[in-house]
């Protein structure tokens, strides 16, 4: 079987708020000093799901990591390779830049078609930068495959995929025929820690790079030209909350003072 894991490299989500800056002229996040871009954590979880299935199936399964991004995204691909994926393809092209979920999905779907024999695609529940959560669905639509989102468990056997999905008030188990797409939620569990041997092997692997020409895509349908959503403004919300620290000599006094405030504000 052949599985694809979609991996995205993002600005470090753990950048402290004080170091999080936006260039308002370009509507982009200014890379914080001392913070390297990282693999979106949910994609690591998706990779873990694919790896567990591969392990359950034995050696005849293969995992290819795809990433749309800049040269630096090689690091994200290598990270998934170190976890145990087999091959990596970086979809890198100036024409792919400044796209939206739709164009990203278009590029990924083209690459998946290009691979030819893919049985299942694993995506993170959302990218931890834009927090959108569409790409998996859009890849599925582009390929005409069924999709299950927010999976906390995935099994693949006998040509079908069975997923347990996280709902607002519980879980649902669904099954779909292959090929299919799944987006994996954090409830699945943490990604594995790579073995050093695999880190070394991953370092030696070559990541293939593909452009719009390799994928047979027209530059006008990808990147900023193909985007359907236009980012008008990216900004840091102004916090208008001025905290009032409740004073008091003892905890009891603090508690009484707080409750008095809540009553005055008609919350209680």
């Amino acid at each position: 079987m052949h599985f694809v894991v979609c991996a995205k490299q993002i600005p470090d989500p753990e950048t402290p708020p004080s170091a999080f800056k936006i260039d308002e002229a370009t509507n982009t996040v200014v890379p914080a000093q001392g913070f390297q871009p990282v693999l979106s954590q949910y994609d690591g979880i998706a990779a873990e799901a694919a790896l567990q299935i591969k392990e359950a199936q034995g050696d005849d399964a293969k995992i290819t990591v795809l990433s749309v991004g800049a040269e630096s995204a090689q690091a994200a691909i290598k990270q998934v390779l170190a976890m145990g994926a087999d091959e990596g393809v970086l979809l890198q092209d100036d024409a792919f830049e400044d796209g939206d979920s739709h164009t990203t999905a278009k590029v990924l779907a083209a690459a998946i078609s290009n691979l030819g024999d893919v049985d299942a695609v694993f995506c993170g529940r959302q990218a931890a930068d834009w927090d959108v959560g569409q790409v998996g669905l859009l890849v599925a639509e582009a390929l005409g495959w069924p999709v299950a989102i927010l999976a906390k468990d995935v099994e693949i056997s006998d040509g079908s995929m069975k997923t347990t999905r996280v709902l607002a008030d519980g879980f649902e188990t669904v099954s779909q025929g292959l090929p299919a797409v799944v987006t994996v939620s954090n409830e699945f569990g943490e990604p594995r820690y790579p073995k050093l041997q695999q880190i070394m092997q991953a370092a030696k692997k070559t990541v293939t790079t593909m452009t719009h020409e390799d994928l047979g895509l027209d530059p006008s349908e990808v990147g900023s030209s193909g985007a359907r959503l236009k980012l008008e403004k990216l900004y840091i919300p102004q916090s208008d909350s001025q905290v009032e620290i409740i004073e008091g000599e003892t905890p009891e006094e603090q508690a009484t003072n707080l409750v008095a405030k809540l009553v005055a504000d008609k919350v209680l």
């Binding site: 708020p17 927090d131 359907r228 008008e232 919300p237």
Partner: peptide, 20 residues
Amino acid sequence: IRVTRPCYGGNALADYSFAT
């Protein structure tokens, strides 16, 4: 139509318009 949505883990807000 313009929309606003939080992103970057709640650190930022983004305003969008639609091309389609």
